[in-house]
Amino acid sequence: MANVPSDLKYTKDHEWVRVNGKTAVVGITDHAQRQLGDVVYVELPKVGETFEAGSPFGSIESVKAVSEAFAPLSGKVTKVNEELVASPELINEEPYGDGWLIEVELSDSNQLNELLSATAYEEFVKDDA
């Protein structure tokens, strides 16, 4: 069973969100990185770019496939994980830690209510495992 920390919010596109006041750190879930396999390249947006919830903000390339990463919330990118340029495998090793993708300044915190809880996400991926 994939690791699903209970203090995070999740999307059906397999992103996780860690909210900290008006900002949120975004990454892909343990389940997603397992499905992808070994990550070899990550393309991330530039700081200052804005995205609407549900729109693609970057891509993650593995030995198996290229997958888009989708913005779980609308907002402006305030940080990108530069470590992933040299070490994309951090996504496989620590999807909820050093493998984070971007930090976003939220434009509408009400969108958090539309995200899945850990329990709901576990239920969502249960048949995928």
Rank of each mutant, 00 (worst) to 15 (best):
T29E: 04
P72D: 06
G54L: 04
A86H: 08
P72F: 07
A24G: 07
P45F: 12
L84N: 09
S74N: 08
F51S: 01
Q33L: 01
L73P: 02
V25H: 01
Q111V: 00
Q35A: 14
G75K: 06
G48I: 10
S117Y: 03
A71Q: 07
A118K: 03
A65L: 11
S87R: 15
T23N: 09
P56S: 14
L36K: 04
G37L: 09
L101N: 05
L73H: 04
A129K: 06
D13F: 04
L106C: 12
Q111T: 00
A69E: 09
K9N: 11
L116M: 12
P56Y: 10
V80N: 01
V25G: 05
Q35Y: 01
K12R: 15
V4Q: 03
G37N: 09
Y10S: 00
Y96D: 05
K79C: 03
F51T: 05
S59I: 10
K126M: 07
N81L: 11
D128F: 04
E103N: 10
A118C: 10
G54D: 02
D128L: 11
L8D: 00
E82V: 15
P56M: 09
Q111H: 01
A129D: 14
W16Y: 11
N3F: 13
N20K: 05
A86K: 13
E82Y: 08
A118F: 06
A129V: 12
E83G: 14
L73I: 15
S107Q: 08
G97I: 13
V63N: 07
